[in-house]
Design a protein around this nucleic acid. Structure first.
Length: 484
RNA sequence: GGCGCGUUAGUCUAGUGGUCAGGACGCCGCCCUCUCAAGGCGGAAUCACGGGUUCGAGUCCCGUACGCGCUACCA
């Protein structure tokens, strides 16, 4: 038991891709747990898979976590008392413990080749036996080893597995155990001299004084190996907690091949980090005792608890994300939202370098409550930022026998003398409708098409107010001209 | 195949032996309304299956099915 220690939790991604939403949720839970206990949140890069990791994806991990606002206290880029924080820079440390296990006879060198191991495994499967390493290199003499080395073989190191039951109390699932006799001695050091993840993680978690190892359920099976390693080293294992796994809509594990799985993709699609965080928090956890679903990181930090984490897999439902995103968009101040819209509008070529933020903010106020994602601002804002084409066909179809010229000149006449203010505009426009006697539906749809160029837009009076008298009148004149 | 973990509506979940099984997303309908949203109101839809235990089971036990994970010199 670890008592009276400052809580230390880590997120240990392998830099083999961009920041994945599954990792993001694990990171969120790790962060929430650490922070709510006044603990330390550590970022460690588990890059022992030299064949797959890349420098750019390490950057991607940083970017993703920071986008969500999950700032770590210690990590490769900011140091700390327990560094280095990249496993590839800790090789000598692992070597030291491998040697210690070798010296005490708890581990041994294995000279089997991959082909030999594979053949052994196949034979076991055919014999309907549980495939596991036979342990045949366990008692090699110095002479044997000499011969094998002369053949050019480079050994791996395996930990001797002692038969019996190993188990642990998972903080979200309760007691979990397994029979190690089914396991076989497993590799802790690859022939390349680089340790296997399962070994390195034990060394690091211990040396970095992690009190809680909280991670995805795909690591449950690894935990047994790690427990054996802790035991061999004479160390006390930390507490473990395993979260549910996130699934695609077809219930397969979220992978890089299906749909959007990287944080960066969601940012590009116009999801707010606040919304993503909020959504992820509820995918595998719930506060209980309340029906409120909108929370900030700070609020989640107070509410979170491992005990209330869900134990069954959760499907990533983008519809729900959309809903939360729309909620968050409406929570933002118009000024804040407007500035977040700028890159999206630039991308759509609706804005240049110089931006009239005051005007953009006014437009934002109008579209804010009908904007599900930031990337849709391009469509929603276009009529305010660019002269729309006159929708002649739609206008004609709508008008029928109504005389557009009469209507437009009446409206223009009236609007010309109006103080450009929403209430004034409304008054003038309503008055013309009474004079003309047009049906409400046709009248307003006609004006909408004439001024906004579309059947869908924010409310007419406020839109006109924001657009300005000059543009409104010229667009109406243009429409009248197009209708001849 | 073996081992592990799981299974409340299409999806996320509440629920810890006695509730009309609650909420949310989505879906459908109505209201509001100058369109679209937002908002309000209402509706359809759930305890995987089979055995136990118990006066009583979504809740406890066993089995089956299904899903997922692991079974690597990946993490």
């Amino acid at each position: 038991m670890i008592v009276n220690k400052i809580v230390r939790v880590r997120i240990a991604p392998s830099p083999t891709g961009d920041a994945h939403v599954g990792h993001a949720r694990t990171a969120l839970y790790d962060y929430l747990f650490a922070k709510q206990r006044g603990g330390t949140f550590v970022l460690r890069i588990d890059d022992t898979d030299t064949a797959r990791n890349t420098a750019t994806s390490e950057e991607g991990v940083y970017r993703g976590l920071r986008w969500l606002g999950l700032e770590w206290d210690e990590g490769p880029d900011k140091g700390g008392a327990y560094g280095p924080y990249r496993q590839s820079e800790r090789l000598d440390i692992y070597g030291h413990y491998v040697n210690e296990l070798l010296a005490s006879g708890k581990a041994y060198e294995c000279y089997c080749t991959a082909a030999e191991l594979e053949a052994e495994r196949q034979a076991q499967i055919e014999a309907k036996d549980h495939p596991r390493y036979s342990g045949k290199c366990c008692n090699l003499t110095a002479e044997d080893k000499g011969h094998l080395q002369a053949e050019g073989r480079v050994p791996t190191v395996r930990l001797k597995v002692i038969s019996g039951i190993v188990g642990f109390t998972d903080l979200v699932r309760g007691w979990i155990e397994a029979d190690t006799s089914l396991m076989g001695d497993f590799i802790i050091l690859k022939s390349s001299g680089i340790p296997v993840y399962n070994f390195a993680t034990v060394i690091d978690d211990h040396l970095m004084e992690m009190t809680h190892v909280t991670r995805g359920a795909e690591h449950i099976a690894n935990t047994f190996n790690q427990l054996l390693t802790y035991k061999a080293l004479g160390w006390t294992a930390p507490h473990f907690a395993h979260f549910s796994i996130m699934l695609n809509e077809d219930r397969s594990k979220m992978s890089k091949r299906k749909g959007a799985t990287f944080l960066g993709q969601y940012a590009e699609m116009g999801y707010l980090p606040e919304a993503m965080l909020n959504f992820l928090a509820f995918l595998g956890w719930s506060p209980g005792g309340t029906e409120e679903e909108i929370y900030t990181l700070e609020q989640l930090q107070k509410l979170f608890s491992l005990e209330r984490c869900t134990v069954s897999n959760a499907v990533f439902d983008i519809k729900k994300l959309d809903w939360i995103n729309a909620k968050w968009i409406r929570i933002l101040s118009p000024e804040d939202l407007a500035s977040r819209l700028v890159p999206f509008l630039r991308k759509a070529d609706l804005l240049g370098e110089d931006v009239d933020m005051e005007f953009l903010t006014q437009v934002t106020r109008l579209i804010q409550e009908r904007l599900p994602r930031l990337d849709e601002a391009a469509t929603a804002c276009t009529t305010f930022l660019r002269e729309p084409a006159v929708p002649v066909d739609e206008l004609r179809q709508l008008l029928g026998d109504n005389d557009a010229q009469v209507c437009i000149s009446a409206v223009i006449d009236s609007l010309e003398s109006v103080d450009w203010d929403e209430a004034e505009i409304e008054q003038a426009i309503r008055r013309i409708q009474e004079q003309l006697g047009w049906s409400t539906k046709v009248y307003y749809m006609f004006l909408r098409l004439a001024v906004m160029g579309s059947k869908v837009s924010p409310p007419l009076f406020s839109s006109m107010a924001v657009l300005g008298k000059e543009k409104v009148l010229s667009r109406m004149q243009r429409t009248a001209a197009s209708l001849y």
